[in-house]
């Protein structure tokens, strides 16, 4: 029945709708450069969402754990075989994305008789110099984007646009300390998480337009203020832990990836989040 082109387009459309629903309850992932490297952060329970891929490359994911594992393994295999056969400097985020992830994900998405990958992935690559830090994100359909300075993945493109807007209004990120970077990352995460919650709440209403901006209390641009963002983080952190990993430019050895221990993270969280809420 899918032989006719319009049927195929319809099937792909259905598939998008199905996939969008799968991500609506996921936790956004944010990554940004700070003074001594790159930080990746999310708030989630259950399986980890942030991983080490290679010496200078880290991964953050949203979606089904089994699909993420499959893609993560294929990346690890590719990176290590390449790093061994050529050299570690030939393992780059751009190559992993273009020749590894993107074709696999796109093919699975378009083969409508088979299950697609329920996964969105963010790759962060620590450059030799800060100017060469690179972020890559890929959607469930195989579309990928490169960015500098920061990147994020969220349930829908509207959510991602809101997180991007938040990052844009907080420029000069590269010079910030780790604690400041964690503060910014948590707020950007909260922007995404609130937007997802709002669009999910409005999804049930028949009048809700697709892709329309979810409304929340805040300033003129519709962006919640910082207190509201931190309040949302504090609420979420009560039941789900913050997950945070670093790629440290001056870390010892060749592997620059390091997961922050919960006690380290506790000391770095903004006081409005770590302190018990005042009633």
């Amino acid at each position: 029945m899918y032989e006719e082109p319009y049927r195929w387009i319809e099937a792909v459309g259905n598939r998008r709708q199905y996939l969008d629903e799968q991500f609506s309850k996921g936790s956004p992932v944010v990554a940004l450069a700070y003074a001594d490297g790159i930080l990746l952060l999310t708030v989630s329970r259950g399986t980890p969402k942030l991983y080490e891929v290679y010496d200078r490359i880290a991964l953050g994911g949203m979606g089904h754990p089994a699909d993420l594992e499959k893609l993560r393994f294929s990346l690890l295999e590719m990176a290590h075989v390449e790093g061994f056969n050529r050299s570690p400097s030939d393992v780059t985020g751009a190559r992993l994305m273009k020749y590894g992830l993107a074709p696999t994900i796109k093919q699975a998405f378009e083969e409508i008789y088979k299950a697609p990958f329920i996964a969105k992935i963010l790759l962060a690559e620590l450059g030799v110099k800060p100017e060469r830090d690179l972020f890559l994100t890929i959607n469930y359909d195989g579309n990928f984007e490169e960015s500098r300075g920061w990147a994020s993945i969220g349930a829908t493109s509207a959510v991602q646009i809101r997180m991007r807007r938040y990052f844009e209004s907080h420029s000069a990120l590269a010079q910030t300390s780790l604690a400041q970077a964690i503060d910014t990352a948590l707020c950007a995460w909260a922007v995404g998480s609130l937007a997802q919650a709002a669009s999910e709440a409005s999804a049930g209403e028949p009048s809700a337009e697709q892709g329309s901006e979810p409304r929340t209390e805040g300033d003129a641009s519709g962006m919640p203020d910082k207190a509201a963002l931190l309040a949302h983080v504090r609420q979420t952190v009560a039941e789900k832990p913050v997950e945070c990993v670093l790629l440290e430019r001056r870390g010892p050895g060749s592997a620059k990836y390091r997961a922050l221990r919960s006690d380290e993270l506790g000391a770095l969280l903004p006081p409005a989040v770590s302190a018990p809420p005042t009633s």
Binding site: Y51, E52, V53, Y54, G83, F84
Partner: peptide, 16 residues
Amino acid sequence: VRVLEHSFKYYRRTQL
């Protein structure tokens, strides 16, 4: 040494 180095890293990264 090269094989071992990659083996230990690969194990750590895959098996967490």
